[in-house]
Nucleic acid binder design. Structure first.
Lengths: 383, 383
DNA sequence: CTGAAAGCGCTAACAC
DNA sequence: GTGTTAGCGCTTTCAG
């Protein structure tokens, strides 16, 4: 019922911070944050003493209990909070981790950010999101953060192969960089990745066990991962049939729409495949829809396996059989690599260290096959 | 080829940053970033001169063209990059926007972050992600960033009603805070939100036009938004039928799983509803699956309307009729509110300013109905 | 036109 | 035990 307060219209130059207009019953926010100097003045000691007490750092340097109490009390009363900027300027870590993501909208990467963010917090780090923004963006989001070296480390989420300049920029930065889910192609920077080979092998093994032979592949994610998954598929097929069947490999963009298009193309082949391995759940979603739209029943006539186990995978119709990776562990491993210190004792870091032709290591984690409803024994006519 | 430059190891203390081990062919990363002082020394001028030139700020203060060139050249040669920390310390904006999100995994919020991030970048801001992390977390992620005042402003994405302390903490901070998609309940802070009322009205209007009368509601998102959407639903039903049919309102958590459960419950009612309005696309996804699993055909026997138009909504089976909001505009509006300055000229900011009982304003944007495949004329037997 | 100096908030070596 | 001093990298008077 109180009369609405109108935000003061910005005259010419708008004031930088629009105050909250709080002015509730609580004391309104002070204009200026409390500094150590304020405490020093309030308590009549020097700034260094305040600093020592507030950080109780030099336990070696005893402080009069009385002084200590007085300062602590003042700090509490004045609601003092250290200024991390100042600390950072002195060389302290900023406790910020940069995460460059290609596409947050991709449910897989949404999950990835979640995982990274959770693991980061366990170590007291916050995440600064850099949006590589598909191809479009100049790798400038990155450059900004890098060059700023506000971050203690940078995580690259997803394949940045489409960002030519980025990796160059990356090279001569002062910040450690680690790649996550980027495909193990790049060998200049340490990486954590999923074992695509073993994942695809598991998927195909599963299908073969169900009697499938005519297995197609829909590739999506650019560069790194797609290459590995596709190569693994090709290898498996050659071992299985002696060849990769003509027209059984569809390469499209990593969207449901393209997945849908891919099924249509696949269903035009003869003989038709009886199973599809999708390089991505997002693609698989489109494939599922494409199949239903085309009148192909899944899994009766067509089995579909995805990759990633995005949250939605359990709720498609039919629910998607897919490959799940240990997101949390992988995120933790990447962070550990990035900040170069292992403070965590709660989780055993696993993953195999794989030496590469270049210098940097890649740590590989094996995905696990999650069998749901989208795979079934091969239609006898098909196999 | 140049011999690798080894960072002078600081005695005992382990070096904070694990070097990249790059040492490729390019000059390896310098141990210490280049400062203005370096440039000053290299060119033989003073730091202040360097500063002036590099910021070409005081255009009022002329600088010798020759000096200018020399400094600029040196800066380029040495690959100088300003240290934003130092700048921030002096009071310059950090160009960081804090975004506190309840759940990145929710596809809607993934999209929201994307939108915010894109709009932020247009103004040169980066996003620092704070994860409120469902109920679990102490609103500490927030406190950290707030108290740190590293951010020029804070955006709250989604309803934080489950974070009691958070809003208190928020109140006496020095940073402007704006709520986005939080439900227009809170009146202490400026907010940007979708016009839930008009959205639900559009959805129900659409269903009614298709002949539906027995329309159920599945509520999901906590607090703010759910209340509004549910209230709007109730209002519409009362206007339509004179009452809200018994058992036609299901309140569940905002997950596909709960959506699935909700349909089952709804299908046990008699008479069965012929249409469902879901308060969220995520819920609607579950509803779609629940319907198919229960053998109820959508849209022949049951129409479903979602809310949010998440990317996946176009790829469900059947594709989801839903309400789309102008994400980019809303994000831009929130940012504008937060940083209190309108530098953007490319987009007309719209949204109606609605005065509230409290002090802060809420800016409301109307969603638009996107009709796809999940709604159809009411089954004559049902209506 | 340019330099010297002070200070942002905090820490650390070095006094007393 | 505590204060003084200097300096992190940068900006900004104020003097030349």
């Amino acid at each position: 019922m109180a009369a609405g307060l109108r935000a003061a219209g910005p005259g010419d130059e708008a004031p930088i911070r629009a105050p909250l207009e709080a002015g509730a019953d609580r004391p309104p926010a002070r204009a200026r944050p409390v500094t150590m100097k304020d405490i020093a003045i309030a308590t009549g000691v020097s700034r260094s003493t305040v600093s020592r007490i507030l950080n109780d750092a030099p336990l070696t340097v005893p402080i009069a209990a009385e002084t200590r109490e007085r300062v602590l009390a003042a700090a509490r009363d004045l609601d003092y909070r250290p200024n991390p900027l100042a600390r950072a300027l002195r060389g302290a870590p900023t406790m910020l981790l940069g995460a460059i993501v290609r596409d947050i909208t991709d449910p897989f990467f949404a999950g990835a950010i979640e995982a990274v963010s959770v693991e980061a917090r366990k170590l007291g780090y916050n995440i600064v999101l850099g949006h590589a923004h598909a191809q479009a963006t100049e790798a400038h989001a990155l450059a900004t953060m890098l060059e700023a070296r506000q971050c203690d480390a940078i995580l690259l989420l997803g394949d940045m192969g489409n960002q030519p300049r980025l990796l160059d920029d990356l090279r001569d930065t002062h910040v450690p960089v680690v790649a996550l889910w980027q495909g193990s192609e790049l060998d200049l920077i340490p990486a954590v990745n999923v074992d695509n080979r073993s994942g695809i092998a598991a998927a195909i093994g599963h299908l073969v066990a169900l009697g499938h032979r005519r297995i197609a592949f829909v590739g999506g994610r650019l560069l790194g991962d797609i290459r590995e998954r596709q190569a693994a598929y090709a290898e498996a097929m050659i071992e299985l049939l002696g060849e990769v069947p003509q027209g059984y490999v569809q390469l499209v963009a990593n969207t449901p729409a393209d997945g849908e298009a891919a099924v249509r193309a696949l269903m035009r082949q003869s003989p038709r495949p009886t199973a599809i391995v999708a390089s991505t759940d997002v693609l698989a979603l489109g494939i599922l829809r494409g199949a239903l739209v085309t009148g192909v029943r899944v899994p009766a006539e067509l089995s579909v396996v995805g990759f990633d186990d995005i949250p939605m995978a359990a709720f498609t119709v039919p629910a998607l059989t897919t490959l799940r990776m240990p997101m949390a562990e992988m995120a933790a491993a990447a962070i550990e690599l990035a900040i170069g210190t292992t403070r965590r004792t709660d989780v055993e870091l696993s993953g195999a260290d794989v030496p590469r032709n270049g210098r940097a290591l890649v740590r590989l984690f094996r995905p696990e096959l999650v069998v749901r409803e989208s795979t079934y024994t091969a239609d006898p006519r098909g196999a």
